[in-house]
Design a binder for these strands. Sequence first.
RNA 1: GGAGGGGUUCCCGAGUGGCCAAAGGGAUCAGACUGUAAAUCUGACGCGCAAGCUUCGGUGGUUCGAAUCCACCCCCCUCCA
Length: 427
Amino acid sequence: MAASTTDIVEDLDARGLLVQLAGGDELREHLKTGSRTVYCGFDPTAESLHVGSMVPLLVLKRFQMAGHKPIALVGGATGLIGDPSFKASERSLNSEDIVREWVERLKPQLSQFLDFECGDNSAILANNLDWTENYSVLGFLRDVGKHFAVNAMIQKESVKQRLEREGEGISFTEFSYMLLQSYDFAELHRRYNCTLQVGGSDQWGNITGGIDLTRRLHQAQVYGLTTPLITKADGSKFGKSESGTIWLSPTKTSPYAFYQFWLNVADADAYNFLRFFTFLSPAEIKDIEESDRQAQGRPEAQGILAREVTELLHGKAGLDAAVRISEALFSGELSRLTEADLQQLELDGLPCTILESGASGIVEALVSTELARSNKMAREFIGNNAVNVNGQTINDVEFALASAGALHGKYFILRRGKKMFHLLKIG
RNA sequence: GGAGGGGUUCCCGAGUGGCCAAAGGGAUCAGACUGUAAAUCUGACGCGCAAGCUUCGGUGGUUCGAAUCCACCCCCCUCCA
């Protein structure tokens, strides 16, 4: 892929992935007239990225598919400082060791969607620690800091609320975050001729900071583009499910849980998410929306979304496992599962606990599998008819899990509520 | 260093000697209804089967009795130096 074939800005716009453009028509022209280098940064704030990071990560891939060269930047330096943008309060610093470890964990996640061996527009993985670690304080303050006016910095929307909010403040450490990220852009321009930074719309202030700095340091025009922060129609926070944050790491969120997350997306969000998180064309998505509207009952969108995104992240095998578990648990009778099916469920990543004693009360089983937070809660669930073992609703607090009642003599499938399942195995 | 304001159960936030396991809202969970939606309604939401027990930044104290009063300490915010 030498020259770009699709108009990437048009495509992003059609998907609703465009919030702001720094450079406007000039940027559109810039992207149409050659293969450009584009970057997006990801700070190590946890040991794994979560679903929210998939949007910019996939945007990088969209750029690569359109013939441009993507740089995934991991914030080994900025992760030590903490971005204050739109954060309500100061965050505590993570130790250097922790950040270093998270950086290593993030690298493969950042790399997995991008192509590193496709010639001229092969992706690059960078770490901003490389150009900041040995930068002297005095040098940085003189060369970089001098280009920033505090007057302008405090006007940025991203920190304004912090400055004005009663009971909160902002440390100089976090306040200077913008300088670091701005310097990243300038440095990536110098090293790789990077001319575009993309990021969530909360990054606008930091991106424009980088554009200004690059102009001052290198007399070069660079551009910015922001994507929407993903919100849900009902206003609740995107990226959480009943079991917590949806992580990209399969050890933290199993392919099954990941698949279920997408399957449970609200109708009002499903089509937008198809546009944001898949490579289906806007036209195809429109067709799905249209046919769902005409059909009765459950829409197709969530199923398509769940399959597409799960396969994108976890591959065919991960998707198959997720589908197998889902079908076994949600359709058909649990008591009909063969021993091999049950073993497969365990292999596929359904949460599983070994039951040592061979017999256990239902209350303690619920607590030990974390299906209930306390004995009291477990009893309440039972009282509400919310507990189910091997397909049978349990309404007796004294119910005992004994091998006699186990599937194939050793398995229990515990269910709390409608969707929380746990496999219990007599060991 | 000085002056002032503040730290309450996941979050916001009321409570200023007993009626407080602590109002209200949000989040969350369960049930009904459904499509493993949404909306709505009902219930739960420190621990304990219960009697009861442990909570209101920390430690001591006053009191029959403290989240509420006193002392000291820690932390946060605002202004001044």
